[in-house]
Design a protein around this nucleic acid. Sequence first.
RNA 1: GACCCGUUCGUCUAAGGGUUAGGACACCGCCCUUUCACGGCGGUAAUACGGGUUCGAAUCCCGUACGGGUCGCCA
Length: 451
Amino acid sequence: MTVRTRFAPSPTGFLHIGGARTALYNWLYAKRHGGTFLLRVEDTDADRSTTESMQIILDGLRWLGLEWDEGPGVGGPCGPYFQSERVGIYDRYLAKLEAAGLVYEDEGAIRFRVPDKLITVSDLVCGEVSTNLKEAGSRRYDADLKREVEANPDIVIKRPNGGYIFHFVNVVDDIEMAITHVIRGEDHLSNTPKHLALFEAFGVTPPQFAHIPLNLNPSGTKMSKRDQGALIHEYQDAGFLPSGVNNYMALLGWSAKDDQEIFTMEELKSRFDLTGVNSSNSKFDFDKCRWVNGEHLKRLTTEEFEQLAGPFLAKAGIAPEDPRVPTALGLARDRVQTLGEVPAIIGTIFAGSVTYDEASVAKVKEKADLAAVIEALITSLEAASDWSIDGIKAAVTSGAESLGVKMGTLMLPCRVATMGSTSGADLVPVLVLLGKEETVKRLRGFGGIIA
RNA sequence: GACCCGUUCGUCUAAGGGUUAGGACACCGCCCUUUCACGGCGGUAAUACGGGUUCGAAUCCCGUACGGGUCGCCA
């Protein structure tokens, strides 16, 4: 049987990292087994569903490269892929339950009679979990009263206003769309017996279930929109690579069982499997996510890096077609973990003026003879006949000799004077790009500031 | 509160009865570098606790603690 997996988001406005990872696991599992990955929009709650909020989710999935084989925009044999357009199908399935005497009306809503027996979920990740819905559902915790109250264990599947409820449509669609593997967050594990009861009521063999552990924020609670790294579009804005984000998401809850940490999408596709998914929740570590992304950045070709960095340069006011850009990018390349960090490294090269970092200035000011050092730099660099890496080095060396100090003594003040900070890209190549005139101008300007 | 799931360095994880408990991020140190990084090498750091079973337990069983989840006419 061909594997068919699905991602079924409800359009609440953002593609959350947890949802994205669920989508990734489903996508990878389908790819790994030569199957089909489908996207279904669970928009039964009309109040919360808008076109824009759905578009953000689709855009996020496309950016990640998790293209769906069936679903919105591409169609497929099991459409429509919006639950809001499938009411006729749900009516038909409801009629089946009615015919079997398994539903009844209760204050305008339709309830499904849950069976009074032990239902066992055989989960590919969590193992076997058993529940009796009739027993478990006959009590409910009332948050206001802070105690349990009597409850009707039969689940509502249709509202008085005609809208169908998640548990029902979810099962109907999984049947209609011939889903073979349901990979979803562990928060659904407790719901699964209800779904199994419905599959049985329809006389259908249920799909295999795999409940994957949740991603928690660093404080150990469920990731919320406000947590760093929670929303996929933020990765795009910050200059992450889709492959880097996918790689890190894959690692949160899954292991290849060897020491490999960096995977291309192709490698993930061939190596991912449910057997490597572990059952305990994981905390999101933004630093490691950045590191993984940095590794993906390093594996880019020069051309790819330049092309991808372009928009981030433009956003920072640097013209990507400036002839100095390729060299500057080469200097920034192996010291950034996201493309968004690039302008901070090389922006000052292209800027009309230098913004001085206070701590950096204070550090070079500690040297008593700073003014003399700057003066020597101006004199020797101005005299340089060959404005190349070697020529500049020779000039700085001669400046150092004139003061009777080592070249290294001049480098940090020169760095702060021309770039504003003690840290930054390799300085001599930066000076080459800056040009002699601008370099000397900046040194003079700095000399004026410290005087 | 009831039920369900979980618990290995700070974090992500490996080890499916016998390992000096391995790797990665982060952190610290050293080397390289006449600057800044990259890089290389090394270090600190973990089996939640208590009972069993066993010649032998991170690994199997029970209990406790802690964490997370579910208990909607949300999905």
